[in-house]
Design a protein around this nucleic acid. Sequence first.
RNA 1: GGGGUGGUAGCUCAAUUGGUUAGAGUUCCGGCUUGUCACGCCGGUGGUUGCGGGUUCGAGUCCCGUCCGCCUCGCCA
Length: 598
Amino acid sequence: MLKRTHTCGQPRLADAGKTIALNGWVNTYRDQGRGLLFVDIRDRDGLCQVVFNLEHASPELVQQAKALRREDVIGVRGILRLRSGEPNHKLATGEVELAAEELEIFNKAENPPILPDDHDAEKINEEIRLKYRYIDLRRPRMQHILRTRSKVTKLARDYFAANGFAEVETPLLIKSTPEGARDFIVPARLHQGMWYALPQSPQLFKQILMVAGFDRYIQICKCLRDEDPRADRQAEFSQIDLEMSFVEREDVMTMMGGFAHAVWHDILGYDIGEIAQMTWQEAMDRFGIDRPDLRNPLEIREITDIVAGSEFQVFQQAIEKTRAGRAGCVKAIRVPGGAEKLTRKMTDGYTEFVKQFKAGGVAVAKFTAAGFETGIAKHLDPFKDALVARLALEAGDSVLIVADHWDTATKAFGELRLKVGRDLGLVNESAWRFLWVIDFPMFDWDEDGQRWVAMHHPFTSPNPDQFHLLESEPGKCLSAGYDLVVNGSEIAGGSIRIHRMDVQEKVFKLIGLTKEDADAKFGFLLSALRHGAPPHGGIAFGLDRLLMHLVGTDNIRDVIAFPKTQSGGDLMIDAPGPIDEQQILDCGMKVTLLEKKS
RNA sequence: GGGGUGGUAGCUCAAUUGGUUAGAGUUCCGGCUUGUCACGCCGGUGGUUGCGGGUUCGAGUCCCGUCCGCCUCGCCA
């Protein structure tokens, strides 16, 4: 085998005169005629031009070189030299070329369905790219992304090892749990009729590792949730998962903040500085979402108190609504300069936009020196002074208003705020805005189930000053949870956990788990908590989403080597697929598909 | 489960109101070409219009069903 002396991106002018050898793929070939043939050879770190001077070559070499085609895998040996023609400044190796004397064709390639070219890739159907992933991954962009991913995981292991963390693997075949996402399930051959579940996270195992005295644990692990994917969500995804003993909220946040600092510093050369903090309530009130994008300057203001006396039916009806113990509300966004920037077509579109979040629509008015104009101006005029003060209105602004249930108005406006910000170009796309969101409620009221559900997960502890509310006013009890948000995207989330059995039992009871259920599902946890559980807490970093930010993509499939489609398929291996009947029988089962409801 | 959108040559796209033999660029194949680098020039191959029905003298185009990709609501403790 003709083995390389350099990778394809390495040769430089300083190496000129040396005999070197390269291994790689034929990126392009440019046949100049009887005597001259250029081949760009590509490997993981770049391109190098190879030139064949065919007049002085053996007939075998001429024949082989002439037959080279894209994606053939070759080895070339020859003398590296300064290019005779103009240098190519687009290539790191652009000043030199390899004058080929020896060529070994390791493998001829069939005419490739797609070419691993970043220039083309943007246009190619992702479906084709996923089917031929082994070609798509040859692209410099994809190589860069997956190598960045590798750098991040190495950085995580180094950083946390230096801070006393031990990497421990937790099992993939575990038990289904009632709360949370749908589990992927696996039949248990040795216990016919029983099922394993694949983990949604190593949550309980890492807590038990704390009980087991490991003090500080980390794992870079796969988590699986059988829910529908999105552009930034896959059923199978990766976490940098950690847990610490003898800590309070701030200790975990400092540790994880330090890691975020190291990542942005080492990968992007960017100093993220001090990470700001905001309570969940403030985030919801000002931004309508628990992961505010602080690059967007628009803010939401509640004006329910101001317009409470309004005759306007829309306001009246909204305020009279109640749900989940919260009164309806009227909220407003001031859009600076909106009188000119927001067209009728845009604002009509906003009404359509918020309907997908169940809101009735968006009311609009312009504000000028003379007062409110257009839209619902006459319903706002009576409250002009108070509204100007609350919203800091200036002439030329527009006001967008949503009146509805609190949760509906909050959600709709939270999403609309992002859309308006994008539409008007108010978001500085190049900025990094980090934020810790803290003081989440412990529980959400579930109208359908008529019960409390854990907002984070049921092992989250109340904040130290909140324990007295746990039973008396669970809806007001705040948790010791924390989410790390960057540019409106949640990249990490965690909490201080409950380490006392009596507290854990109370929470289980509150979310409607009977003692029998709790024992059946989580008896091992309760037992562990009885046998010397230290105060502990942890956090998990979403590795895929982290990478999306670092490499600048809004498609999670770009940062996963072999991702799945929205229907959970792998287009390369054509999964999922059928299995042999014997495999099913081995599990003591037979399969009967139910009729699809029409 | 719902909403939206797309599927035509290996790839990226076009095809007027339902109307001739479904075109173009690129890849690929052949020829030419000694300094190209998205090489260039000439010629050629290449089609189950996702799949299955239907309407029609005639369907890429209209209708019904179905599969697949993407975006999204629900969902994602």
